[in-house]
Simulated scan of single mutants.
Amino acid sequence: MDAFQQFLKTFFDFNAMAEVAPELLLVGLPNTLIFAISSGILGTLFGLLLAVMGISKHRLPRYLARIYTDIFRGLPAALIMLLIGIGLSPLTSPILGKSPYPMGILALSLMAAAYIGEIFRSGIQSVEKGQLEASRALGFSYSSSMRLVVIPQGVRRVLPALMNQFIALIKDSSLVFFLGLLASQREIFRIGNDAQANSGNISPLVAAGVLYLILTIPLTHLVNYIDKRLRTGRAEKNTEKNQPEQGQAPVSVEGSPVR
Rank of each mutant, 00 (worst) to 15 (best):
V149S: 15
R156I: 11
I188E: 05
Q153C: 03
L91M: 13
A168H: 07
K98Y: 01
E118Y: 03
S141G: 15
I170R: 10
G123A: 05
S122V: 07
T92A: 14
Q185V: 00
F178L: 15
N164L: 11
Q153K: 05
S199D: 01
L181K: 05
Q185N: 08
L110C: 11
I95Y: 15
V155W: 04
N164K: 06
V155M: 15
G87P: 13
I116D: 00
S135Q: 10
G139Y: 08
R157M: 14
L96N: 04
A197L: 14
G123K: 09
F166Q: 03
G200L: 08
F120Y: 14
G192I: 08
Y142D: 03
Q165H: 01
A183C: 00
S141K: 12
S184W: 00
S109C: 09
L181Q: 14
Y142E: 10
S174Q: 12
A114S: 15
I105G: 03
D194T: 13
L138R: 09
I124C: 09
I151A: 10
V127T: 10
I167H: 02
I116L: 04
I202M: 14
N201W: 02
I95S: 05
G123E: 06
G200F: 06
L181E: 01
T92C: 09
R136H: 01
A114E: 07
A134D: 02
K98V: 08
A112R: 01
S145T: 15
L181A: 07
S122M: 02
S93W: 01
I116F: 00
I170G: 07
G87H: 06
P102M: 06
N198D: 13
L110G: 07
G139T: 08
V150L: 06
V155S: 09
S89W: 05
E118W: 02
F120V: 01
N193K: 14
S135Y: 01
G139W: 07
P102E: 11
Y101H: 05
M111C: 04
S199H: 02
F178K: 06
Y142G: 00
M111K: 06
A107D: 12
L181G: 01
G87M: 11
S184Q: 13
N201K: 13
F177T: 10
I167W: 04
S184E: 01
S144M: 13
Q131S: 07
L106S: 11
Y101L: 12
Y101C: 00
A112D: 05
I116Y: 00
G104M: 06
A107P: 11
V158K: 08
L169V: 03
I124W: 02
Q125G: 04
Y101W: 12
G200W: 03
G97S: 11
D172I: 00
R190G: 06
R186Q: 15
I116W: 00
K98F: 00
V158Y: 08
G104Q: 09
A161C: 04
L132V: 08
L138V: 02
A168G: 13
L138Y: 03
G192W: 12
Q131I: 08
S126L: 11
A137Y: 06
Q165N: 13
S126W: 12
L179G: 02
L169A: 04
N164Y: 05
K129A: 14
M146T: 03
Q185K: 04
I95K: 02
K129T: 12
N198I: 07
I188C: 02
L162T: 04
Q196G: 01
V155T: 07
S89V: 03
L179F: 06
S199I: 05
S141E: 05
L106M: 15
